[in-house]
Nucleic acid binder design. Structure first.
Lengths: 179, 179
DNA sequence: CTCTCTCTGTAGCACTCGCTACATGTTCCA
DNA sequence: TGGAACATGTAGCGAGTGCTACAGAGAGAG
């Protein structure tokens, strides 16, 4: 593993823990046992570093989603997708995705590009999982759009809500209506 | 109208246009024809100014949602909520809400408090609108949670998606499944 | 007229930011 | 053994941050 790849992995860990908005090179570098000087040297600029971190986080997410076992029904698939997205590992990635999307709201790169790429890959992964659960190709695509939106919306407010169980109930309601 | 209220209204306009993340007092003050010095004088601190701006934006949103005419059915109500949320005025408020939520992801005030307050008021407004469209009290609450999540999720990715019509199709699908 | 209270402009503090210039290792190949 | 290429530490630049100290302007009250 090159030095750059190693730094990218560990930088991703750091950002997942400390957040993307307001990320600063010096504290990041200190946590990684190096200097801002070296981060710029290896990545060229802060923006390239961030693009790398976002891509790394997305790869991790996708690996987990693709490793999900098949669900017995569409209804079960939706709830199980929720459970995976709210698992400890994916939750942090989702949180960072929210930050990236917010940073990209006004068109700023590298956020817009990264988020767009993530969107597409996620939607495909969800579609695939629903197809594996028995949905037809057309239906899987339409359902995936709804499920993706609902999960995103719920995850979005999750860190602020007091009642964590309620979100799951909402997803169960949705799964019942769609399944 | 006090000077402070006037500044709050115009500051809200500015933030809605230019974004919340990375907001800086000096450019804001210049656009308002005053100085950072005076903003601190009137609001006490940047955080209090932001809290005021978020509250102002939320009031505007709520005024619009509460002014919606009754919908003929639950199915129509869901689609009409979407149309209002994607109208020009509300879209900017939603965008700012996304930024505030992202800034609050790690517990920072005043974002967490403001977003929590917004959440609650919105959910009530959506519930009310669904009740007015004929849903029973219990059902309206459950539907509102789903609709709120789906709308939030879709709005979230909206600035990045190329196909604007697709989001509406997703909402129509959802409305058909729930209505 | 003077005193007080609200408001505002000027200047600046102490700090952080991404990034760079320059010099110095360190390594590996010819 | 020499030289090129890669790697790293030190110091600092120029710009921007929220916020403050200080002085003064203006108005209303006695």
């Amino acid at each position: 593993m090159t030095k750059r790849e190693d730094l990218a992995q560990r930088a991703t860990d750091y950002v997942l823990e400390h957040g993307l908005i307001g990320l600063s090179l010096r504290p990041l570098a200190a946590a990684l046992g190096t200097s801002d000087r070296m981060l710029i040297y290896h990545f060229g600029s802060k923006d390239e570093l961030i693009a790398t971190v976002l891509a790394t986080s997305n790869e991790r997410s996708m690996r987990i989603v693709r490793a999900m076992p098949r669900s017995a029904s569409v209804r079960a698939a939706i709830v199980e997708l929720w459970d995976v997205f709210t698992s400890t590992k994916l939750e942090a990635c989702q949180r960072m995705y929210v930050e990236a999307a917010a940073l990209g709201l006004f068109g700023r790169e590298p956020y817009v590009g990264s988020v767009r790429a993530s969107n597409q890959v996620w939607l495909e992964a969800i579609t695939e999982h629903l197809r594996n659960a028995g949905a037809s190709a057309d239906r899987a695509g339409r359902l995936a759009a709804i499920v993706d939106a609902a999960i995103n919306g719920l995850l979005f407010d999750r860190p602020l809500d007091t009642d964590e169980a309620e979100a799951r109930r909402v997803i169960e309601d949705l799964a019942a209506a769609l399944g």
